[in-house]
Simulated scan of single mutants.
Amino acid sequence: MSIKKAYNDWAEGYDINSNKTIDLDKKASMETLRNFNFSKVIELGCGTGKNTAFLLEKADEIIALDFSENMLAKAKEKIKDERVVFKKRDITTSWNIKNDFADLVTCSLILEHIKDLNLVFKQVSETLKNDGIFFVSELHPFKQYSGSKARYETEEGTQELETHVHHISEYIAVAEKNGLKLMELKEWFDEDNKSEIPRLIGLVFQN
């Protein structure tokens, strides 16, 4: 199943079904981004707008991108705020956003679906202002090594999505290649149980 079709199918139950990874991502995103000031935001892979609402607590303008029309439809149903513009985009192609636009670019749980990270990080660097922040929240590669990947439940059973493993060193290297400096790296654990494999990794880069 293509990634786009999978997310279109997942959209109906995305906000309803229990999912530890999605729930922890929201916590990680909120706790990390509350430490930064931002006005103009690019949200990559906004999905159903689960993180868009808290970004609006600080942002004056958000451009929220996703390639799934069904996910975007759900987001538009929930969030009716003139400060947000939802756009259908495949983020591995041109975003059509002017350079030096954003104080913050943020993405959650999408980079595992992208083989070539350079295509994304290059546009992040171009669209961020000087000293702007790029926040990445992703399934921890340790989880991927153990066989975890994005999945959702349907009446026909569990559907697993096509994914790519990106090592921590790869994130840092591709960021440096595009002029982004690592500011923060944090591992996020289920119920803060640090005796288990961390579920998520959070990375903050500065342009």
Rank of each mutant, 00 (worst) to 15 (best):
A175P: 01
K98I: 08
F86M: 10
A175D: 02
L182P: 06
N99I: 02
E191T: 10
D15I: 07
A73H: 12
L56A: 12
E82V: 03
V124L: 02
R151K: 06
D81E: 03
E57Q: 12
N35S: 15
L203M: 15
R199C: 02
T154S: 13
D25Y: 06
L44S: 12
F54A: 04
T92E: 00
I110R: 00
T48L: 04
Q206C: 05
Y14K: 06
K177C: 13
A53R: 15
E191Y: 09
K20W: 10
A11E: 05
F54N: 14
V204P: 01
H140Q: 10
Q144M: 09
K122C: 01
I22Y: 04
E196M: 06
E112I: 08
H140V: 10
S2L: 02
K5T: 07
S195M: 08
R151E: 12
T93R: 05
F101P: 05
D90W: 04
D192Y: 10
F67L: 07
K40N: 14
I3Q: 00
K115R: 10
N37G: 13
K5H: 07
L119S: 08
K129C: 03
Y7W: 14
F189L: 09
L104T: 13
E57H: 04
P198L: 12
L72I: 10
L119Q: 09
I97K: 09
V124C: 15
S148V: 09
S146A: 13
